[in-house]
Amino acid sequence: MTITAEKTRTRAGTARTTVTRQDRPSGWYLAPALVFFGAFAVLPMVLVVYLSFTSWDGFGTPELSGTENWTRLIEDGRAWDSLWLTLVFMVLTWLVQTPIAMLIGVWAAGRQRNRAILSSLFFLPLLLSTAAIALLWSSVLDPNFGVTQSLPVLGGFNFLGDTELVVYTVVWVISWQYVPFHTLLYQAAARQVPESLYEAATLDGAGRYRQFFTITLPLLKYTIITSTVLMLVGSVTTFDTILILTGGGPGTATRVLPLHMYITGFSGFEFGYASAISVLLLLLGAGLSLAVTRATGFRKMQSQQEGV
């Protein structure tokens, strides 16, 4: 086969190789990815947008109902309370998870004694299913039979029954569940920082804390963004832990918007209205990740290590 690549000059003046048509791999290579993306991402999104304009109880055929679901959503005070609660959870879980995941991740990237053993312990929640984690914590924190009830100090709290406290309990359990995953991200990123930078900093007189704040932290910038986007998007999609742990209660104290959507759809059988909520969540998640990546310059996709 002949290679017919020709050199052209772009406006910036750098030489770039233009690949002509016959060198390009066949478009069919895209097919598997497109099929999966279409079937599991685009199609459901289109369907859910369609359903948000219908009235459907899950049986029979959806009937078009115009903007009824949307006007109802705008007037639904409970939905807005849930949205506010979702944002509160979003901020709280980010605040709890990020520093813990970063510290453990950076620590686990080192070469300390016992590091491997302790790391595997820290990563253990990653192996458990959401249901297992939620059941585990609900039996630990149960107001009547929980382990905490027989402990001093902790026994005095009603972790799952107190409408104020339950918010922090849920934040704690969700963080406990997801910190290991974000720790892995930070560990991998911290391992990428060349050892010689720390050696140079040591010779420059920087102590361990200074090295963390002036070298490790700036070089983890993109990992912080990645991890943040995953946490934000996670906050608008996950409800399974809360569903099993508190069911949204007591009352509506932990009824976040995704859970509100789930209950509306699968308990109230108002799939049209639930679809409207999920479209709102979809827009929220997409908007947040776009905003974060744009505000931080992450989208430029520039290497942070270049020039080391």
Partner: peptide, 19 residues
């Protein structure tokens, strides 16, 4: 400790702080 030795080092990969 290295910082109190009053020496400076040039590394093979330069070890410049990229940020």
């Amino acid at each position: 400790p290295p910082k109190d030795r009053d020496i400076a080092m040039v590394f093979q990969n330069y070890a410049l702080y990229p940020h």
